[in-house]
């Protein structure tokens, strides 16, 4: 009996501090956000219940919709840019197609260690009218008065952000794919080579099929990460000019901490959670569909 009591007390001591902090910082605030999302509240007095009006307002706000569009472009760059590039880089290193694979790996992963704020400020210089891109374009076009002003175009202003996202995070996908490729039994590859398989066949027939579930897992990471993107864009453009580069997280931040619409801001943050859950469910059902079809 004492050992049983001892076991329970030990369990509580080991797990409850984590559970408590987690409940305090994540569970309770998420529930709180969910409730606040149905109210109007500026931080003072009591919140006023307004039903779904925050969600209605959000979905008819052109700024929100533009932010959503930008978020979807970031998802697209992650899924169709970072993942394929990361895969190819990992494959080249895994198969030893280049010497000094270790060196290349180290260099390509390097940006991950740099803070998003530093990355943002550095690339800001590149894309600013007095920056690197302007300087390069002046040389290429032989026009010393050319000024690069992509941020003035509502549709294209997000492009520099997409470039930076591709530059910044591809290394993560490379490392993930490489770690998973290294788990493939070397005997399988050797057997394929002995059987006279060409490199193309090793890639598509041996390695790729073993990577399908990882491809889907990384797609889930990419979606969750893309919808969270805040720091980088916030420090790069702050969503500007004129909300051209805004994303949902920045839209939420501005509404909450600049315009003090706590209720509305909460509704937007709940929307982020709903969107990521929705997209991830979609990806998973696509995966199940393919799995059922090919097995």
């Amino acid at each position: 009996m004492t050992t049983l009591g001892n076991k329970r007390a030990s369990y509580a001591l080991l797990t409850l501090p984590s559970v408590f902090i987690y409940a305090l910082v994540i569970v309770f605030p998420v529930v709180f956000s969910f409730v606040l999302g149905f109210t109007e509240w500026s931080g003072f007095g009591a919140p006023v219940f307004t039903g779904l009006s925050n969600y209605r307002k959000m979905l008819t706000d052109l700024v929100f919709l533009h932010g959503l569009r930008n978020n979807m472009l970031i998802v697209a760059v992650s899924v169709f840019g970072q993942i394929p590039f990361g895969f190819v880089l990992a494959y080249i290193i895994y198969r030893g197609l280049v010497k000094w694979g270790d060196f290349f790996q180290t260099m390509i992963f390097l940006p991950i260690t740099v803070s998003a704020i530093v990355v943002a400020k550095l690339w800001n210089q590149f894309f600013s009218p007095a920056g690197m891109v302007t300087a390069i374009a002046r040389i290429l076009q032989d026009d010393p008065r050319f000024v690069f002003a992509i941020f003035e175009d509502r549709a294209l202003a997000i492009v520099p952000v997409l470039v930076v996202i591709l530059w910044y995070y591809t290394g993560i996908y490379m490392v993930i794919f490489l770690a998973n490729m290294q788990k493939i039994s070397p005997a399988v590859i050797e057997a394929a080579i002995v059987d006279g398989a060409k490199e193309r066949q090793i890639l598509f027939r041996v390695v790729m099929p073993q990577m399908t579930n990882i491809l889907f897992t990384t797609a889930v990471f990419a979606i969750a990460g893309s919808l969270k993107s805040f720091d980088l864009i916030f420090a790069m453009t702050g969503g500007g000019p004129a909300n051209y580069t805004t994303v949902i997280a920045i839209y939420m931040y501005l509404n909450t901490f600049k315009y003090y619409n706590y209720g509305f801001g909460s509704a937007v943050s709940i929307m982020i959670v709903i969107l990521s859950l929705g997209l991830i469910t979609l990806i998973q059902s696509v995966y199940r569909y393919f799995e059922a079809k090919y097995e």
Partner: peptide
């Protein structure tokens, strides 16, 4: 399972309540 669900929650979803708390 509760903790794993937390992987999906972004810092921004809790900023308002956290700030108030």
């Amino acid at each position: 399972a509760f903790f794993i669900m937390g992987l999906l929650i972004t810092a921004h979803s809790v900023l308002v309540p956290l700030f108030v708390m």
